[in-house]
Structures are given as C-alpha cells and as structure tokens.
C-alpha cells in the first residue's frame, strides 16, 4: 500500500485546479469575444435596417387635425 504525503497531494490538486482555471478562462474569453462580435455585427445590421425603414410621413396639419384643435379649444 502506497501513501502519498499531504504535500504532494496538495501540489497535484493545485496543478489540476490551475489547469482547469486556465482552460475555463480560455473557453469563456473565446465565447465572450465571439458573442460580442456577433452582437456588434447584428446590432449594426439591425440598426441600419431600422434606419432605412424610418421613412414615416410624420405630422401634417390636415383638416382633421385643425378640427381637433378647434374642438379642444372650446
């Protein structure tokens, strides 16, 4: 039966932990960068599309509007 010293165990677990953190960090940062890039591209495209369709007629003082103002003024 072989027994490992507590020191060797702790050093091994530290190595595993640090490797885990390294891998986790790499995956998260790559994912975040991808998502940010997609978001920027997506938002840009959406904003452009929205700007193109903002072609509303807008307010006009029609006969209907004039009559509404007259009614409100009583």
């Amino acid at each position: 039966m072989t027994t490992e010293s507590p020191e060797s165990q702790s050093s091994e677990s530290k190595t595993i932990l640090s490797r885990r953190f390294l891998l986790k960090g790499a995956v998260l940062s790559a994912g975040a960068a991808g998502a940010a890039a997609a978001g920027v591209i997506g938002t840009g495209q959406d904003a452009q599309a929205a700007a193109e369709t903002r072609n509303g007629a807008g307010y006009r003082e029609t006969e209907h509007v004039r009559r509404a103002y007259e009614a409100a003024g009583f």
């Binding site: 509303g56 007629a57 807008g58 029609t62 209907h64 509404a68 103002y69 409100a72 009583f74």
Partner: peptide, 30 residues
Amino acid sequence: RIAEGKLPLCAEMCATKALLAGDGDMVSTI
C-alpha cells in the same frame, strides 16, 4: 394615426378635452 394625418386617439377621444396632443405651440396656446 400620425401618418394618416390624425392626432393620438386618446386626446381626440377625451370627452372633456382635458388631454391635449399635437403641435406643442398649438397645445400651449389652447
């Protein structure tokens, strides 16, 4: 309704004309 040449319905429908909507100059004059 604005594109139809009308004003917001809430203001047009208001029975006592308490709610006013439209051109700010006209609204403040009224």
